[in-house]
């Protein structure tokens, strides 16, 4: 390009064009900053969020919740007696695209005298990694606590599955067109019209309790306080990954029940800190841009000088 600019006043052109570029970049940078702010206010710091408390000492592993979930989400459902088949507990199961929730059974240990059954589904994090990671923002953390997925936006990149600390989102690998990311939506459509989540509604022993998260925490702690010998003294989900809408109490340590070693810091925390660092109001990229521009300009001038001198030398 240097040859082409030669016949104009290089300095003026450079400055003029540089100014245009800067203005354009600033304009672009404003939009993502705004969307970030919105995300923070409406979706994370919400006091009205609901949740579910799962009590592993009560769950009997009847798998009514699995069936109810399938019914509520219009998946093909078998007869209720097929769900009484306990041979499925021989292997550890995970949610799948047509099964948002599964119950797993663990042999008795500690103070528990009978097998411990644990339900698995989306934890509905207070600060969901999937929502933070999604390339198009197809996940929404609602005021009600539910984290839902929008089929109209998703491009099927599966980054949510990489990001999720609980490995919950599942993908319809067998579909060539419109494969979906499938995960528990805390029965968003049901709760919107005042119903309670299908699994909670159908649990015969009330191992699942739906209610405001704060209230559920009190209930969980009350349970532990009342039966200190029956429970492991920890409410899983109170602080894990910055808190989750689903809370768990169990008779044994949670690592024994295959709960992942997630830690208390929100899963998207570090990533968002890095992102905000790199894109702090687009200043770092612009600074780099201007610096490189400056370097280029200086070098151009130096080069031309040398060239001119060489040319002059040649002429002589």
């Amino acid at each position: 390009m240097d040859e082409k600019v030669k016949n104009q006043n290089p300095r003026r052109t450079f400055l003029k064009q540089f100014a245009v570029g800067t203005a354009a970049s600033v304009g672009v940078s404003l939009i993502p900053t705004k969307t970030e702010a919105k995300f923070k206010d409406t979706q994370r710091e919400n006091e009205t969020r609901m949740g579910v408390l799962f009590d592993a000492t009560l769950c009997a592993g009847c798998r009514n919740c699995e069936r109810a979930c399938k019914v509520a989400h219009n998946f093909p459902v078998d007869d209720i007696e097929t769900f009484r088949d306990r041979s499925v507990y021989k292997e550890y199961r995970r949610p799948s695209p047509n099964n948002y929730t599964v119950v797993n059974e663990f042999p008795p240990s500690g103070v528990a005298t009978f097998p411990i059954d644990v339900k698995v589904q989306c934890m509905h994090c207070n600060e969901p990694a999937c929502a933070s990671a999604c390339i198009v923002g197809a996940f929404t953390k609602h005021a009600s606590g539910a984290v839902t997925w929008n089929s109209d936006m998703c491009i099927g990149c599966r980054y949510c599955m990489v990001a999720c600390p609980f490995q919950i989102p599942t993908f319809e690998y067998d579909k060539a067109i419109q494969p979906k990311i499938q995960k528990c939506d805390l029965c968003f459509e049901r709760t919107k019209v005042g119903k309670i989540p299908a699994c909670v509604e159908n649990c015969p022993v009330g191992a699942l309790t739906y209610g405001p998260r704060e209230e559920l925490l009190l209930l969980a702690k009350e349970k532990i306080e009342r039966h200190p010998d029956k429970y492991y003294h920890h409410v899983f989900g109170e602080y894990e990954v910055g808190g989750t809408s689903w809370l768990y109490v169990a008779p044994v340590e949670f690592s024994e029940l295959k709960f992942p070693p997630v830690g208390d810091s929100p899963a998207p925390g570090v990533t968002e800190a890095i992102q905000h660092g790199i894109f702090a109001y687009f200043i770092p990229p612009l600074a780099l841009f201007s610096w490189l521009g400056g370097v280029m300009y200086v070098n151009n001038r130096k080069n031309k000088k040398i060239e001119n001198e060489a040319n002059e030398g040649e002429k002589k």
Binding site: I31, P32, T33, T35, E36, F39, S132, A133, C134, I135, V136, G137, A138, M153, C154, I155, G156, C157, R158, Y159, F171, E172, K175, Q178, P179, P268, T271, E272, I274, Q275, I278, F279
Partner: peptide, 24 residues
């Protein structure tokens, strides 16, 4: 090839998620 909905590859152009490194 890798994304499940290849025909939606243009979505990130109009649907922005500033917190996502993948978006960036």
């Amino acid at each position: 090839v890798d994304i499940g909905r290849w025909y939606y590859i243009w979505h990130p152009l109009v649907m922005w998620n500033g917190t996502s490194p993948l978006f960036e």
